[in-house]
Design a protein around this nucleic acid. Structure first.
Lengths: 243, 243
DNA sequence: TGAGAAGATGAAGCCCGATTCATGTTTCAC
DNA sequence: GTGAAACATGAATCGGGCTTCATCTTCTCA
């Protein structure tokens, strides 16, 4: 009897008033989680920032973890949608990469909490954390695969490539958007695209190491580089150490 | 008077016995922080795992944060040293990248806590977190600069490039070492190096986008993609959403 | 060998936060 | 207008963890 009236449970608020309150909580949660981190953020912080009473929180969310997960999922969805839109008009894959990176930077600038929130997810709910990147990767893979079929991108394993590109975006956003006050972002973009566009270039030869030192003296197929170093194998013989 | 005898303060343990205990705590801390995350890890967890009493902790560390920071710094130092060693014999920069990545993968496999520990650092002590990447970047920058001067790598902004390469390593390690049970790591390495080696190739033209679709129908110099897309100060009507 | 330094101990103090609950207020369909 | 559902409230419960401290044990060296 108290159950039926005290909680939205899985159904969510039915009144505009309730929806508004719930939205206020989500918004407050995003910024509080971003500022203080999941553990240090208290429900009281969230309700205070949201301008509602402590108990109200539990009308809309069963616990702290739930609202956090919802924040992460929603952030990811918004960002993916935004990038997809901004990139829709690009016909060449390199343009897609450049424009996607640019849009990502803008989003990070407008949501400085993004990184902190997402990274906490690893500890709050691993599944949520992986899902965030998985969904990005999925989009990347299908786009890259299409681009490979169109001959715009050299054929490579698309998922590995996707994670490479995500890693570039992630680290550049961290270094040049979060850490830097006023970087020439277009310059950063140019550097990144110099790496990426040549890296993807389908006209470059596909197999072995292609780059030879043009200034150094002798050609070395891979001379000494100790393949097996002092680390003991974890359990199986360290794979990748041999070829 | 009790001060003098109750704490090592800044001097550290003087006896082998004390050094051993301190080391036990550091080792235990690394794994506990990795498993449970900084906040959820309790001092009691650490001392239990280290096989010492609760109070002993405060003989060696003034507080929880200190030991955490020391764990992060030490992990970074070990990893950097290891990579530097494994790469010392490589003469071509592409070999350096490949071997460095391989060594990184091995390290991650042997220290699955690395990621979780380092990422928590962002919330425990931001300076410690940045320092971790800064130090990597510094090494990268000097190596890349040298390689550029030797004509092994196309000239680009070395710090941006460093963060690109770190991002690739980080994300590949996450996806293919932490998340995957038994990946063909050499295959991943090959894909990454295909991207990187062509991306660094000094022989490729240096300036603008070089890649054109070789299979697609029409040559497009760069048709629509809004070029100068305000990467401006925050808070503004959502840009990029339209196009 | 024995006194003092170094190291080790774990119970207790103190603070804080997630969640619950009994109750009050607003909304809205009839 | 009115009663029930939806929404809002914040004091109180309950558990847990960091840190302190008074005391004990081990080691070292004169």
């Amino acid at each position: 009897m108290n159950r039926a009236s005290s909680s939205q449970d899985r159904s969510g608020p039915v009144t505009p008033r309730g929806q508004k309150t719930r939205a206020k909580l989500l918004k407050a949660a995003e910024s509080v989680f971003g500022e203080k981190g999941y553990e240090r953020a208290s429900i009281a912080d969230i309700t205070r920032k949201g301008g509602v009473a402590l108990g109200t929180f539990y009308v809309y969310f069963p616990d702290k973890q739930s609202i956090f997960i919802e924040v992460v999922d929603e952030l990811g969805t918004r960002l993916r949608r935004l990038i997809a839109e901004s990139v829709a008009a690009c016909e060449d894959r390199v343009d897609v990469e450049r424009q996607g990176l640019r849009t990502f930077f803008q989003f990070v600038r407008q949501h400085p909490n993004l990184y902190r929130v997402v990274r906490q997810a690893e500890f709050v709910d691993e599944a949520c954390y992986r899902r965030y990147y998985d969904r990005f990767a999925r989009g990347y893979v299908s786009g890259l695969t299409r681009a490979m079929e169109a001959g715009q991108v050299r054929r490579m394993d698309p998922e590995t490539l996707a994670y490479c590109l995500m890693g570039i975006s992630d680290f550049l956003g961290m270094r040049w958007v979060l850490w830097e006050e006023d970087p020439g972002l277009e310059r950063v973009l140019d550097t990144a695209m110099a790496l990426i566009s040549h890296g993807l270039d389908p006209r470059a030869s596909t197999g072995r190491n292609t780059v030879k030192s043009s200034a150094a003296s002798k050609p070395k197929p891979k001379p000494k580089t100790p393949k097996k170093n002092t680390l003991r194998p974890a359990r199986r013989p360290a794979r990748g150490a041999r070829s």
